[in-house]
Structures are given as C-alpha cells and as structure tokens.
Design a protein around this nucleic acid. Sequence first.
DNA 1: TTGACAAATGCAACTCTGTTGCATTAACTT
DNA 2: AAGTTAATGCAACAGAGTTGCATTTGTCAA
Lengths: 122, 122
Amino acid sequence: MTGRNTKTKRALLAALNSSNIPMSVSELVKKLHVNKTTIYRELASFIEEGSISEVDFSDGQKRYELTPDGHHHHAVCMDCKAVVELEIEPIIKKLEQNVIKQSGFMLRKHQIEFFGVCRDCA
Amino acid sequence: MTGRNTKTKRALLAALNSSNIPMSVSELVKKLHVNKTTIYRELASFIEEGSISEVDFSDGQKRYELTPDGHHHHAVCMDCKAVVELEIEPIIKKLEQNVIKQSGFMLRKHQIEFFGVCRDCA
DNA sequence: TTGACAAATGCAACTCTGTTGCATTAACTT
DNA sequence: AAGTTAATGCAACAGAGTTGCATTTGTCAA
C-alpha cells in the first residue's frame, strides 16, 4: 500500500475483497460511510499502483475490483446484473496482436465486456 | 427513417455521415444548434432501428456513429484522440463462442475498444 | 511520549452527462 | 387549409465525478 496505512484504505480493500462483483463508488460510499471524494482519491491511487482495476459496464458509473492477478474480463447479466469472470486471455492476446498490426498503435489498455442474459434469467 | 422526416433528423444523420469519428452529444448540440433533449431522443430512436450505434470510450460521455454495415470496433489514440476502425469480426466471433461456452450466457451485445498511442503521436 | 509536519479526509460548491414533464411548434393526413 | 399528433424546446432535475480549502490523523524525529 502506497502512502499511509489508514483505516479507510484498509476498509476499502476489505470491501472489494469481500465482494464477488465489481463495486461502484455509490455502493462503496454506502457501505463504508466514507465521503465520496475520499473514495475517488483512494481508488485513483490504488489504480495507479495496479492493485485495483476500473471496469466499465457502460451504465453511467464505473466499477472497481481488486486485481491481484491482473486485468479481468466479464460477462454481465442485463437482467439480474450477475457478473461472471471470464478466462479469455490467450485469445485476447491474439486479438491485440491483430489490432496492433492493423492500426499501428502502441496499445495501452482495452475495454472488453460482454452483456447478455444469464442461464438463471433466460 | 422511422416517424416523421424532420429537418433535425436529416441534419443529425448528415453530421454523423460527414464525421470520420464517432460524435458526442455535446459536439452534436454545438454543431446542429439543436436542444440536447432532442438529440438524445433522436439518437435513441435511430439506435433502436439500428442505423446508429453507441460507442463508449469510457471517458464520461458516449459517442455515436452511423452503422450502415453493423457494429464496429475502434482503436482510440489517448493523445490526439484519433479513431481507427478495426476489422476484427472473425476473431470476435470466435471470442464470443468462447464466452458463451464459459458463461452459459445468451449474449446480446459487447463493448470492445482499444486504447493506446497512434503512430503519429508515438 | 510528545509535538510537528504532511498526508488523508470531509465538506461544500461546482461541472458535466443524461433524464423528465410540460408547453409549443411543425410534419403529415384528409 | 385545418386538425391531429409527433417532434421539439425549455426548465428543472438527478447522479457521477472534480476541485479548493479547512480540519483531522498517521508518521517520524526528538
């Protein structure tokens, strides 16, 4: 942990650790009773150091999750909002090579999420 | 075009047609001098009929583009904001099959964008 | 252990995206 | 040309995210 070891930082990491789905800032504020400004600032520093990642389900608010083992991808149920973690690293690696070849870009990050209806809701 | 053939709808389609990159609502408002409520409503109806698609570069505002040939994917330069269209349909198809097998989800849509630095900016 | 300094936090005010209800305008029908 | 109703504008609002500044708290040196 960068900087001071505060109660709030520990609580933030514990909350994300105990959740099986990425959490939004409003959820974190409600759960931790900490000012949203503080949440945003701590998230930014954890993201910079790499231990937390931002995920965007394109619903108007970003979500956050612990990433001890690096970047994840998800399938999100549009009905019950369940989130399933995917194991698609190899094919994504191949996809990135393809994108680099086509665009000439130096890739920094990507945003890959899938949306649909889970088996329970179908 | 669904509904009435209005000046605003024609102007909206023309603006998107003349732009080589997806446009945000604030850009469309500035360019067309039309109320943002109207823009949002017309975009929604064009999106429903399929002729316009929403793309999300995760920077706090959605963008819109004509999609006469269906869904696109992009590489976005984090420096100069250039947008390159990608041809990655076949590998995406394979990726989706993989996701369906892993998650059991009925897939409805996905969000796949790449971010990096273009050749000019590197 | 205490005191000082700097980092962390809270608070209020703000910006921006996107939404809603309602009154007005304009496109289509006959 | 007149009536119907979709389309538009406007004002007010909700929610995410940001900023400046005052206050609190963790850390470290004495």
